[in-house]
Amino acid sequence: MSCLFGFDVGTKVIGVAVGNRLTGTARALAALPVRDGVPDWQALDQLRREWQPDTLVVGLPLDNEGKEQPMTRTARRFAETIGERYGMTAVFTDERMSSQEAARRFAAGRAAGTRKRSDAKSIDAEAAAVILESYLLQA
Rank of each mutant, 00 (worst) to 15 (best):
T93E: 12
G15H: 02
V57P: 13
V18A: 06
N64E: 04
P53C: 11
P53Q: 06
L32G: 04
G83I: 05
E80F: 10
G113F: 13
Q46E: 12
F92D: 00
N64M: 14
R27N: 10
G113I: 15
V18S: 14
V130S: 01
C3S: 13
G109C: 15
L60T: 08
E126F: 03
L44S: 14
P33D: 14
M1W: 12
M97D: 05
L56Q: 11
L47I: 07
L44Y: 09
L44K: 02
E95W: 07
M1V: 15
A125T: 10
S118K: 13
G24I: 07
G24A: 09
V57L: 13
A75E: 01
V130M: 08
L137Y: 13
G15K: 00
S134W: 01
A111P: 00
R48G: 01
T114M: 14
L22P: 02
G59W: 03
P70W: 00
L62F: 09
V18K: 05
D8G: 14
K116E: 15
P33S: 12
P53E: 06
K67T: 10
A127F: 05
L4T: 08
Q46M: 14
T114W: 13
E95H: 07
T89G: 04
G87V: 06
M97P: 00
V16S: 02
W51V: 06
I123H: 03
M71G: 01
Q42R: 15
E65R: 10
W41Y: 10
P39M: 06
G19L: 00
A102C: 07
R73Q: 04
A111C: 03
G59S: 08
T114Q: 15
R73S: 02
V34Y: 09
G66R: 04
L60S: 06
L137R: 12
F5Q: 13
Q42K: 07
L47E: 07
A125N: 03
A75K: 02
A129F: 01
R96A: 04
W51P: 10
L136P: 08
Y86M: 15
V38Q: 07
V58G: 14
R21E: 13
A75P: 00
M1H: 10
E126T: 09
E68G: 09
L60Y: 06
W51A: 05
M88H: 11
G10Q: 11
T81V: 14
A30P: 01
A111G: 09
E50V: 09
E133R: 15
R76K: 07
A17F: 01
W41A: 02
V9K: 01
G6I: 08
N20W: 02
E65I: 03
